Amino acid sequence: MKKRTIGIMGAMPEEIEGVVALLANPEVTKMGKRSYFTGQINGIDTVVVFSRWGKVAAATTVTTLIHEFKITELLFTGVAGAIHSDLKIGDIVLGKRLLQHDMDARPLMEQYEIPLLSKTYFESDTVHLAIAAKAVQKVFENKALHTVIATEDLMQFDIAQPKLVIGDIASGDQFFSGNEQKQGLATQLPNVLCVEMEGAAVAQVCYEYEIPFSIIRTISDVADDNSHIDFPAFIQKISSKYAAEIIKNIFEQI
């Protein structure tokens, strides 16, 4: 039986700071222009790293976690732009299925299909999905959110009653900041909840190496012409706090 080692990737350096603070006996290993922080959370060996942005960077990072640090499961946290109209800033999406919206090898194969794998979507397993969902709900229930994030910070981003949604996440090497982009994706992939730049690449690598994964995304903007949010402030005040609290709650269950 393999020794359990959990890898945690964050899409922003600020998002991993709070998670690194959870580590007991922290050490750092520098490799491939990345700093891998190792230690234990609740007695479980853990490796935390900033993935950098985009599919290639994320795939490189998770591959290093698998080969060099021998992780047995993977958690990924980051922000995303809302595609579905029901999502608001501060909501959290858990990826049930991940796909690459910029994969298109037609006419050799269907649009979005990953070459050689005959797959369009990569699915998170139900056990890890349930654990992550419970961890998120614990943050949102019984006003726990106000003990994690200052009320004035929640008000700054008009976050009142954030919700958890589980479903499809699309990834690609594009930042969505226009109505035409958003509407085009929503038309082609009506089940997609949000869009980001790493999750499906991470999911593909994990699928190929048979590593269970959880992709956890905080909605930071609505991915259109009105996406004028103060990203540095949102990362510092909201999503980084979410990330640390959700990770802490996950480790309390395992």
Rank of each mutant, 00 (worst) to 15 (best):
M155Q: 15
I250K: 09
M197T: 00
I92T: 07
I169D: 00
A59Q: 06
L22I: 06
A200L: 04
G54N: 04
T38K: 13
V127H: 14
D168R: 02
S171P: 00
G7L: 11
G199C: 00
T120W: 01
Q161A: 12
I44S: 04
Q204K: 01
A80W: 02
Q236D: 15
E196P: 00
I66A: 11
A170N: 00
A11W: 01
I71S: 05
T5Y: 02
R106M: 14
E152Q: 13
E27P: 03
I247Q: 01
K3G: 14
V139S: 12
N142H: 15
K182M: 07
Y242N: 12
S240D: 15
N142P: 09
G78V: 00
R106S: 14
P13K: 12
I250D: 08
V49G: 02
E141I: 11
P26K: 11
A11L: 03
T46E: 03
E180D: 14
G54A: 06
H146I: 12
I83A: 11
S240I: 15
L145P: 05
E210W: 05
I89L: 08
A82W: 10
I41L: 07
I169H: 00
E68P: 00
T64E: 09
M31F: 14
E14T: 15
V62L: 01
D230K: 03
I254Y: 15
L145Y: 06
A80E: 01
W53N: 07
P115H: 09
L22A: 01
P13N: 12
I159P: 14
